[in-house]
Design a protein around this nucleic acid. Structure first.
Lengths: 161, 161
DNA sequence: ACCATCATTCAATCAATACTGAACAAAACG
DNA sequence: CGTTTTGTTCAGTATTGATTGAATGATGGT
């Protein structure tokens, strides 16, 4: 309790590692960590200074997070810097990433089923089996996302459409 | 249809890339791809020759897949090589990996909530919010795994060439 | 119109890590 | 027992990808 900044930087760094093990750049995770801890919009310059990384890295990684829908750009009236903030329900985007990866997996399996001769009984069985599994899992997770989106609505903040 | 080996190696390579984007070594994915296509147990030597990689790589990656529960070791009576085969319901292990990663995420959030002062209202709210979300998502996916495990039971058994 | 300030992009560097080859260990067969 | 076959480990290499610094582009202010 006595060493708050240590707790903060520890969490941010941990988010970086978590991002890395999810196939994302470490700095993207750190940025996300920063926004979970610190309120309100922050400029790219502030992020660079706060996380001790180059402006270039912050720019590219913020863009990654924006494309994922985790961050969204905003503007501060008096200032002309680009400001970012957490998107509402940003954690849903994490699961959506999983869903997307399952989608490419499903497509790959479908392609293999299509291209392989039908007389490879074992292969076709395993492919279809796995394909069916992935698709139902994907559908379930998608439903889960929708359901959770409703349930957790309106907690974080009120603005934006 | 006319170019079967191309379809096979294409699928195997694609599995390698998918594995890579999931934070796993590429060869692990290729091995998994091999076992989806080809029936029955295979020796490490055969995998090395078939996938054109070193024995060392096959050894370490097969171990990785075994630790994940995707492959399991088996023995062929006359032969003293180590043989591996697909574990039944191996795809469930994929989702279990997601669940596990969510677990570490949840733990990290809990630690941050614990270590940060309570008067950081925004931070605490976002942490608790996200924490709650991750946990319910994790529970749901775990239920999903159990459910799917029952539904797809007993399909893929009955192997050997 | 020019300047100042910021974001982005791009080549180069750096770090992480997957992969290999060789040495080592274990175990089975003669 | 010694030899042969096989699996693992380890140091080294190579490749991939993240990060940086400098150049470029864009935008608002004067």
């Amino acid at each position: 309790m006595s060493d708050t900044p240590q707790a903060v930087s520890g969490f941010i760094e941990r988010m970086g590692l978590a991002a890395q093990s999810d196939g994302m750049p470490r700095i993207a995770g750190r940025i996300l960590g920063y926004f979970i801890i610190h309120d309100g919009p922050a400029s790219l310059a502030r992020l660079a200074q706060e996380l001790q990384v180059s402006r270039a890295s912050v720019s590219t990684n913020a863009r990654i997070l924006r494309n994922l829908g985790v961050l969204e750009a905003t503007a501060v009236p008096g200032d002309r810097q680009d400001y970012y903030r957490l998107a509402e329900r940003h954690y849903l985007r994490l699961l959506e990433g999983y869903v997307e990866r399952m989608g490419t997996m499903s497509a790959s399996l479908a392609q293999a089923e299509r291209e392989l001769p039908a007389d490879w009984a074992g292969a076709q069985t395993r492919l279809a089996d796995m394909h069916h599994f992935i698709d139902t899992a994907r559908d379930n997770i998608r439903d889960l996302i929708e359901h959770l989106a409703d349930r957790t609505d309106g907690i974080s903040r009120g603005q934006r459409s």
